[in-house]
Design a protein around this nucleic acid. Sequence first.
DNA 1: ATGAGATTTCAGAAAAATCTGAAAATAGAA
DNA 2: TTCTATTTTCAGATTTTTCTGAAATCTCAT
Lengths: 210, 210
Amino acid sequence: MARESTPNSTPQIKAQLIEAQDRFIASWGRMGSVWGISRTMAEVHALLYITGVPMCTDEIMDRLRVSRGNVSMSVRSLLEWAVIEKVRLPGDRKEYFQAEQDVWSMLRAIARERIKREVDPLLGALDEIGELSPQIGSNSPEDVIALHHRLDEVREGFGLITTLTHKFAGPRGAGLQTAAKLLAKAPVGRPTKRHKATESKRNPRRGSRS
Amino acid sequence: MARESTPNSTPQIKAQLIEAQDRFIASWGRMGSVWGISRTMAEVHALLYITGVPMCTDEIMDRLRVSRGNVSMSVRSLLEWAVIEKVRLPGDRKEYFQAEQDVWSMLRAIARERIKREVDPLLGALDEIGELSPQIGSNSPEDVIALHHRLDEVREGFGLITTLTHKFAGPRGAGLQTAAKLLAKAPVGRPTKRHKATESKRNPRRGSRS
DNA sequence: ATGAGATTTCAGAAAAATCTGAAAATAGAA
DNA sequence: TTCTATTTTCAGATTTTTCTGAAATCTCAT
C-alpha cells in the first residue's frame, strides 16, 4: 500500500521511472497532434494513464510545465471524451482526475471521437450535396450520373464505417477487442482484379474543359 | 463519349454540377485538416476523385486557386499515398494526374498511411521506453511493475491494430471491405462488468508526492 | 451569508502549420 | 546538344492553432 514511497525504491530507480514516464508522455503527446487533439491534451491523458495516480490541476501543471488555463481546457475535453474522470478526496477541496485504466476503452473512445468529428460531418455534407446537385433524369449527362455514382460510393463506404464504429466502439463493452480478435483470425479477402479508371475509359479529356 | 460537352448539358445544369463538386471538395478539404493532412492536399485529391478527369498542374491551380508550389507538393504526397497516379498524354509534355476511383482502395490508403504515421512511431517509442525503464526484478517496487504493465497493454493494443491494418489494408485486395462486411454481421461482445480504477485501489495518493 | 480556495474564461502572445512565388533544377523535343 | 516548357524547391509571408496569465466566476466549509 505505498506509504512514503514504494518499497525497494532507490532514488536511482525513481529517476529512471520518471524518465520513462516522461518519454511515454512525450510520445503520446506527439501522436496527439497527429490525431487532431492538442499536444497538451494528449500529454495530460498520458500522464494520468501512465502513472495511474489521480492528480489535481496544480500537480499536472507542475509535471507538464503548462499553464493553468491549458490544463483546465485539456481536462474538460478529456472528460467529454470520457477517458478520464473526476475524483473527489474527502477533506480536500480540489478536484482530482484519474484516467480510465483499460486500454481498449481508451481506443474505443478515440475511435468514437474521431468518427464523430471526422466522418459524421462528411456524411451530412454528402447528403446536402446530393440534394443540391442536378437530379438524375431519364437522360442526364454522363458527368451528372458519374457525380451521383461517386457521391453514393463515398457515402456507402463511410456509412459502413460509421455503423461499425457505433456497433463496436460504444463507451462500454468489449466490442472493439472482440472485433479485433475476430478479424485477426479471419482469412483475408482475395485481391480484386485491378480495375483502374472504372469511370473514365480511355482518356475523356479534350473538350469539357472550361 | 462526350465531345464538346456532354449531351443534354444546359449551362444551368453545368453550373449546378460544378457547385456540387466544389462543395464536395470543400468538405473533403475540411476533413483533411482533421486527418492531419493539409487542406490543399485533401482538396486536390477530392477534385481528381469527384470529377474523374485527369488534370495537369495548371488546371488544378486554376480550379482550386492555389499556388503552383502548393499543388506540386500536394501531388507528390498523394502519389506517395498511392491514391492518385501520373498519366501522360502522348504529344503533351505536361503530367496529368488521376485519382484512384475505387473508394475502398482510397479508404485502405488512408488507413495505411495513418498507421504508418501515427502508430508505428508510438510502438517504436514504447520499445525504447521499455528498455530504458527500470527492469523488473524479484521484488521491484509496485510502481515499476505497474509501469511495465501499462506499457505492455498499450503495446499489445496498438500492436493488434497494426497487425490488422497490414492484413486488411494492403494496397491491393478487397481486405477492408471484406472485414467491414464480416463485422457488420458479427454479434457484438457483451459489455464487460465495469471495473473502474483497476489499478489504484482505494486512493493511493498521499505519499509518493515528491 | 462570507470569503478563501479552486476553477473557468478569454484576449492577446507565441508557436506551428501552411502557402506563395520566384529562382533553380529537370526533362522532352528537335 | 540546345532550347524551352514543366516541375521542384524553399525562404519568407500568411494563416491557423495552441498556450498563457490574470480577471471573473464559482463553490464549499464555516
